[in-house]
């Protein structure tokens, strides 16, 4: 019910906008957010953008988790050089 789908904003006209995810595009509403620009990633719930997705924060979270839990483990070490690309 509280499902949220991340999409990228492609067009904006007032509170009406078009957002895309892969090959899917959808009309959405921006009533609940300020300062959204084309190219921003937003979380869509029942046709409304409910929050902007912070990409840096996403990366930081994942890097922190990898560092704390995956890096020291055998599983992490086995991944060897592929770690550098992360």
């Amino acid at each position: 019910m509280c499902l949220g789908v991340p999409m990228k904003v492609a067009e904006i006209k007032g509170n009406d906008a078009v957002a895309e995810a892969g090959s899917v595009s959808k009309s959405i509403r921006l009533d609940l957010l300020d300062n959204i620009s084309v190219g921003d990633y937003v979380l869509i719930h029942t046709g409304y953008a409910i929050e902007k997705i912070d990409r840096e924060e996403a990366l930081e979270t994942i890097e922190l988790l990898r560092k704390v839990y995956a890096a020291g483990k055998d599983a992490g070490l086995r991944r060897g050089s592929s770690d550098e690309g992360d």
Partner: peptide
């Protein structure tokens, strides 16, 4: 940041991909 975005694009979805990463999930 760029590598991360490329990774996300390559997985053809979004940043959720990294949060589904089997190896990290297994470690956790």
């Amino acid at each position: 940041m760029q590598a991360f975005e490329e990774e996300a694009v390559m997985k053809e979805i979004d940043f959720r991909a990294s949060f589904r990463e089997p190896e990290l999930a297994r470690a956790l």
